[in-house]
Simulated scan of single mutants.
Amino acid sequence: MQTKKIINNGDDAVDEMVEGILAAHSDTLRPVGGNLRALVAKNGPRPGKVGLVIGGGSGHEPSFVGFVGKGLADAAAIGNVFASPPPDPIMECTKAADGGAGVLYMYGNYAGDVMNFDMAAEMIGMDGIEVRTVLTTDDIASAPPAERHKRRGVAGNFFVFKAAGAACDMMLSLDECERIARKANDRTFTIGVALGACSLPQTRKWNFEMGPDEMEVGMGIHGEPGIAREPLQSADQIVDRIMDQLLAEMDAPKGSKVAVLVNSLGSTPLMELYIMNRRVHRRLADARIETHRTFVGTYCSSLEMAGASITLIHLDDELQRMLDHPCDCAMFQVK
């Protein structure tokens, strides 16, 4: 039995989506040389500024293209659904974002993305553009702390991109932008819980099976297995399950400050996200941790997957400044 989607031909879904994005956000975005898979901020790149290029597979909107604009990412390379962009659009983004001060690549830690971005960096280096790479590895369910370098990048990439984009917009050096990006990543922690599957536009079949009374803790944004398949629990129980692990790994002393992201994986509505957020804030207050800012909504989706993730970033004064720095992107603004 096929799933229901409002699409035309599944093979055309990504390009038609990008056409719609450009029609809605023509004041912010433009394609590089007419390439729908390489989008650049109209008001982002400028001489002397470190360029920030992000990217990854489609199906995670508003990641990645939604975070392209002045004050955040300069360009995004767009892959097929759940697939890395190939090197060519990454290289086009790099050239468009280059202001002569180097370019920072940032994306989730997935084998295809690593291979293609590394290939693009090697080829673009022949043109004299210096590229540094910072992978996002915020998904604490995907590997133990001793193997953090193996962890996936999920919704927490929002905080890491935001910090790096602010550093670039402040005209800091490539060394400083890389340092701040790595610092933000090291202090960002995410766990998600899935209640149901998603389906690809080309197949329109559920990409995994889950019982009506089940949930999976730690599932990845492409349907990668989590750490436990459990009976469905209440909102407070789910949040407590997640917060116990996030707080333990973050290991922040009393009086610390965090920012919070409660993220929908696609079909989970705002009502349920805010119910979760209520419990998140109670748990932080009980731990004597101050909440500086809270973001609730869809920031990194998995098509129409049911479920949500919670992300904490452990702030210091520098990261707080980066988070509060203004940006004006296609699908996200800070004033």
Rank of each mutant, 00 (worst) to 15 (best):
N8L: 13
D11M: 05
A13G: 09
D15F: 02
E16K: 13
V18H: 13
E19S: 04
I21E: 04
L22T: 07
L22Q: 04
A23L: 08
S26H: 10
S26Y: 06
R30L: 03
V32Q: 01
G33W: 00
G34A: 03
R37V: 08
V40Q: 02
V40G: 01
K42D: 00
P45E: 14
R46K: 10
P47Q: 09
G48A: 05
K49I: 04
V50Y: 03
G51S: 14
G51V: 04
L52Y: 14
L52V: 14
V53Q: 02
I54P: 05
G55H: 09
G56R: 05
G59P: 09
H60R: 10
E61V: 06
P62K: 09
F64W: 15
F64Y: 10
V65P: 05
F67A: 04
F67M: 05
F67D: 11
V68H: 12
G69K: 12
A73D: 10
D74C: 15
A76M: 07
A77F: 13
A77L: 12
I78T: 14
G79W: 10
N80I: 10
F82R: 15
A83K: 15
S84A: 15
P85F: 14
P86A: 10
P86M: 09
P86G: 13
M91D: 05
M91Y: 03
M91L: 14
M91A: 11
E92N: 15
E92P: 10
E92Y: 12
E92I: 08
C93E: 03
A96Q: 04
A96C: 08
A96M: 07
A97H: 06
A97G: 14
D98H: 15
G100T: 12
A101V: 06
L104C: 13
Y105C: 13
M106P: 03
M106R: 14
G108K: 06
N109E: 02
Y110I: 04
Y110T: 03
A111Q: 13
F117T: 12
D118E: 14
M119A: 08
M119I: 05
A120H: 01
A120E: 01
A120G: 04
E122S: 11
M123T: 12
M123A: 13
M126S: 13
M126R: 11
D127P: 04
G128S: 05
I129M: 07
I129F: 10
I129G: 04
I129P: 01
E130R: 08
E130G: 03
E130V: 10
V131K: 02
L135P: 05
T137Q: 03
D138W: 02
A141P: 01
A141D: 00
S142P: 11
P144K: 00
P144D: 01
P145S: 08
P145N: 03
